[in-house]
Amino acid sequence: MQVVQFLADNGPWSWIVAGLILLALELVVPGGYLLWMGVAGLIVGLLTLFQPIAWPLQWLIFGGLSLVAIFLWVRFNRGRETANDSPFLNRRADRFLGHEAVLEQPIVGGFGRLVLGDSVWRVAGPDLPAGTRVKIVGSEGAVLRVERMS
């Protein structure tokens, strides 16, 4: 109840200060939610600075602006991919998709070996003799799936 009385006594400046505090807290506790609540607090403070509004309506505007801003932010960010300077980190086998190579050892019983760069990879595919040109078409863990080149 003291918070409501404080807001009623100090008017728009309390919303502006609360908005700035929420923005500062966003720096300490990142996540985005406090950012939009801080912006909503600043907007309510600016609205009440120019037009007196009853405190229950101020809280309603603050809550509504916060919810709408957070909802739009979450919806916008959910579909975006994060930029990554190492897209194949922890997925080394995916780096070789589409590459062509020559089998070091024959594929017998569905499995063989292939040298790519400085690594020897286990490959799976149809039985093929050593020296056959193959194309890497997929991966399952550390096993590369290959097909014979036409």
Score class of each variant (00 low, 15 high):
Val39Pro: 00
Ala40Met: 01
Ala40Ser: 06
Gly41Ala: 13
Gly41Lys: 01
Gly41Tyr: 10
Leu42Trp: 03
Leu42Asn: 03
Val44Phe: 03
Val44Glu: 03
Gly45Met: 04
Leu46Ile: 09
Leu46His: 06
Thr48Asp: 15
Leu49Glu: 13
Leu49Gly: 07
Phe50Ser: 11
Ala54Arg: 05
Trp55Ile: 12
Leu57Glu: 15
Gln58Ser: 04
Trp59Cys: 05
Trp59Thr: 04
Ile61Leu: 06
Leu65Met: 06
Ser66Ala: 10
Ala69Cys: 07
Ala69Ser: 06
Phe71Val: 14
Val74Asn: 10
Arg75Leu: 07
Phe76Val: 14
Phe76Asn: 08
Gly79Pro: 06
Ala83Gln: 10
Ala83Asp: 14
Asp85Cys: 08
Ser86Asp: 09
Ser86Glu: 12
Pro87Gln: 10
Phe88Lys: 02
Leu89Trp: 00
Asn90Phe: 15
Asp94Trp: 04
Arg95Lys: 13
Gly98Asp: 10
Gly98His: 08
Gly98Pro: 10
His99Trp: 04
Glu100Asp: 14
Ala101Gly: 02
Pro106Ser: 02
Pro106Arg: 01
Gly110Gln: 09
Arg113Tyr: 03
Arg113Ile: 06
Arg113Gln: 14
Leu114Arg: 09
Asp118Glu: 15
Asp118Arg: 05
Ser119Cys: 09
Trp121Met: 08
Trp121Ile: 12
Trp121Cys: 07
Trp121Asn: 04
Arg122Ser: 12
Arg122His: 05
Asp127Phe: 11
Ala130Val: 04
Thr132Leu: 12
Ile136Ser: 09
Val137Asp: 07
Val137Phe: 09
Glu140Trp: 06
